Computed example of a mutant assay.
Amino acid sequence: MKLYAISDLHLRHTDNRQALQALPAHPDDWLIVAGDVGETLAEMELMLRTLTERFRQVIWVPGNHELWTMPSEQPPLRGEARYQRLVSLCRSYGALTPEDPYPRWPGEGPPRILVPMFLGYDYSFRPDHVPENKALEWAWEEDLLCTDEVLLHPEPYLSRSAWCAARVESTLARLQALPPDCSTILINHYPLRYEHVRLPRIPRFSIWCGTKRTEDWHLRFRAEVVVSGHLHMPATLWRDGVRFEEVSLGYPMQWKHRGMSLERGLREILPGPAVRPL
């Protein structure tokens, strides 16, 4: 029995949909889908219908793309209402979400709890010399503007930062209540640490990539592995003896350039590598 993870399926693209359909069954294994499935409820349902038939258990956390309010969808759902609609859709297929009780890993090994999270971002992934109220201006200097600024609405919160703050606080309360004898697998669409936002071509896009409030969560909450996506730069990184897995598939030109397929893009989280780096 294994735990796999993948993110950024971006099913708007035909090649990605075909790759999803070609994925073989893993009837004994669990799968984490770490956000950015697509932009529409139909794409979300395609993922759920396909993957819940091929894996024993699917766990989903939202990316930014799922939370976009698309003009083509009626009635339009914004902010928290859209998120709750996605949660409801997942539950109708038996997939777990950040709103469900955190499951214990049923496979071999020490006690572990899988922690799917929805945290968002607050523009704090930026250099110290850039003030908070200048973060967007700093990105605009490099002609960067995330589509979230147009399509990702935070209602009923006043801002995306306020939504992020609320999500961080509610998640903290749940994490602090976990039994101390269990390690965790922390799962979030965005990286938990600023240093892991490796975007050499567009470094100022970092402001849409997470929150510094989570910088020490891998230590505070006994993480064995931290799973994230969003960057479209799959990699295994280590910090403080903790394994960080960026599990993005990405757009067709990206995964094809890497010689990947969706099957090859599945990242093994558990049991994972037997040897840790020194």
Rank of each mutant, 00 (worst) to 15 (best):
T184K: 00
H65P: 11
L145F: 14
A95F: 14
W60T: 00
R264M: 12
Y190S: 02
L119H: 05
T214V: 09
Y4G: 01
A173F: 01
P62D: 13
P76A: 15
L145E: 09
R239E: 14
Y93F: 08
L96I: 15
P203L: 10
H13C: 08
L77H: 10
E39R: 11
D29T: 12
H153R: 08
R276C: 10
S170K: 06
E142M: 15
L114H: 07
L31E: 02
W105C: 05
W208I: 04
E215I: 13
D29V: 07
P24N: 14
V225I: 11
K256I: 09
G250N: 09
A166I: 00
L23V: 05
E73G: 07
G250Q: 09
F55S: 04
E141Q: 13
N133Y: 03
Q74H: 08
E45Y: 03
H230F: 07
Y123E: 05
L11S: 04
H65K: 00
T171F: 11
H13M: 08
T40E: 12
W208N: 01
G63F: 03
P156V: 12
K134E: 10
H189L: 06
L23S: 15
D28R: 12
P127V: 05
Y121G: 11
D8R: 03
D15L: 07
R49L: 15
T40M: 10
S159A: 07
C182V: 05
D143H: 14
A166S: 09
G38P: 09
Q18L: 04
P76Q: 14
R267Y: 12
